[in-house]
Simulated assay, not measured.
Amino acid sequence: MQCDYFDAGVCRSCTWMGQGYDEQLAAKQARCAELLAPWPGLDWLPPVTSPESGFRNKAKMVVAGTVEAPTLGILDPTGGGVDLRGCGLHDPRLADALPVLAEFVTRAALTPYDVPQRRGELKHLIVTVSPDGELMVRLVLRSTESVARIRKHLPWLAERLPLAVVSVNLQPAHKAVLEGEREEVLLGDTLPMRTGEVVLHLRPQSFFQTNGHVGAELYRQAAGWVAELAPASVWDLYCGVGGFALHLAAPGRSVVGVEVSEEAIASARQSATDLAHVSFVAADATTWAPAQPAAPELVVVNPPRRGIGPDLAGWLETSGVPHVLYSSCNAVTLARDLAAMPAYRPVTARLLDMFPQTAHFEVVTLLTRA
C-alpha cells in the first residue's frame, strides 16, 4: 500500500507502511510461531488475510485547527493539527463522511481544542460505519457549552449522512485520553453491525473489531471449532457486545457472556432478545468465574492486550473445563498465560491479520485439557 502521508513524513502511525503485504504476513506468522514454540505439535491453519486498505470501520480523529478550517487527524509534535481525512485505511464510506463532518464543525461553531493553549471545546470525532453503510458519530467535548448548537444543526447533518447514532462524550481533563465516562445520546440508540447471520448492536461506548472482514472470519473460525466439540455449556468471558457468545449460540446450548462494561452488556442483551439460552452478565470476569457453583464445558476468553492474568489463568487451570478458546491481540501475553495453565495443550491456532501495515495481529487458539 502506498500512502502520501507516510511518504511525506507527516504520519508514521503505520510503522510497516511500504512493506509488501506477503512480507508483513510472513513476519507476523513467524513471530507468533516463535512465541508459541514451547508448545510443539501445534497445528497452524492458514492465516486469515485482510484487504491492505479501506478495512477500518472506525475513524478516531483528533480535531484541531480553527472553526473555519478544522483539521481531522492527528497532532504534530508541537500540538498542531495534521489533517488525515484521506487516510487509506478507512472504509471509503468513512472517508466520504469526514468532509461533511468538518463542515458541520464550522456550521455549528465547534471550537477545536487547542492542546498547547488548553482551550477550545471539540477534542475528537469518533466515527463508525456499519456493513450496511450507517454511521455512528461521537463528538468528544471538553464541556457541554456547545451541545445546544450541535442539537440545532443536527438535522442538517442528518440530511447529508446516513446517521444511526449521534452522541456527545464529555472529557474535561487535559490529558491524552480519547474519551470520558459521561455520554449523552442525541440521535438513535444503537448501530446494527451485521456479521454473517448475526446482527450485533453497538452502543457509543461499546468495543467492536475495527476490521469487520477479519472480525467476521474470527467468529466463523470459532463457531467451526465449537460446532465440532458440541459443548452443552459455554462461557464467553470479556464478551464485549457478545460477538463470540451470539455466534456460538445453538439449540440446547447454554451460553453466558460476561463483560465489565454495562454499556456493552446492554448492547449484547439487545442482540440476544430472541435467544432463550443466551444470557449476559455485567461483571468482572476474573472474579465472576471462580464464584460460580459449576464450570461450563467450554470457555472463550477474549481479553485486552494485558491478557487474562494469573488469577483467571489459575482458576482455569484447576477448573476442570475441558476446552478453552483463547482469542488474543497480544501473543506475548497469550504465551505467558498459556505457561500459567500447564493442564491445557494448544492443539490448533490461526493468525488473523486484523491490523495490516503494523506489527499487530490477532491469534485464536483452541486449548484442550491434557
Rank of each mutant, 00 (worst) to 15 (best):
A223H: 08
A250S: 10
G243E: 13
P231A: 01
L218W: 12
A222H: 05
H247M: 00
V255P: 07
A232H: 12
Y238R: 11
A222I: 15
F244I: 11
A249R: 04
G252P: 07
H247C: 06
G242T: 08
E217F: 10
D236R: 15
E228T: 13
A230Y: 01
A249P: 02
G242E: 11
G243M: 05
V234D: 01
D236Q: 10
L237F: 11
A232R: 11
A227W: 00
G240C: 14
W235I: 09
H247S: 03
A222N: 13
L246D: 02
A230D: 09
A249V: 04
L248W: 05
V226R: 03
E217C: 14
P251I: 06
G224N: 13
C239H: 02
A230W: 02
G243F: 11
L229T: 06
C239V: 00
L229A: 01
S233G: 06
P251H: 12
V241H: 04
A245R: 14
G240R: 07
Y219F: 14
L248M: 09
R220T: 14
A245C: 06
G257T: 07
Q221V: 14
S233R: 12
V226L: 03
L248H: 10
G252F: 08
A230H: 06
A223E: 10
C239A: 07
V234Y: 01
L229K: 05
V226D: 05
L248I: 04
A223M: 12
A222P: 15
F244Y: 09
L218V: 15
R220C: 10
Q221G: 03
G240V: 10
V255W: 08
L237T: 14
G224Y: 08
V234P: 09
Y238T: 03
S233V: 12
L237G: 10
A227Q: 06
G224H: 08
V255H: 12
A227G: 03
G257R: 09
A232V: 13
G243S: 08
Y238Q: 08
E228F: 05
A222K: 14
W225A: 01
Q221M: 09
P251C: 06
C239K: 04
R220S: 12
Y238E: 06
A222V: 15
A230S: 09
Y219W: 13
A227H: 06
P251R: 01
S254C: 04
A232Y: 02
P251L: 09
A250T: 02
W225T: 13
G242V: 03
V234G: 09
V256Q: 14
A227L: 10
V255R: 12
Y219M: 15
A232Q: 07
S233W: 07
Y219G: 05
V256P: 12
C239W: 00
L237W: 13
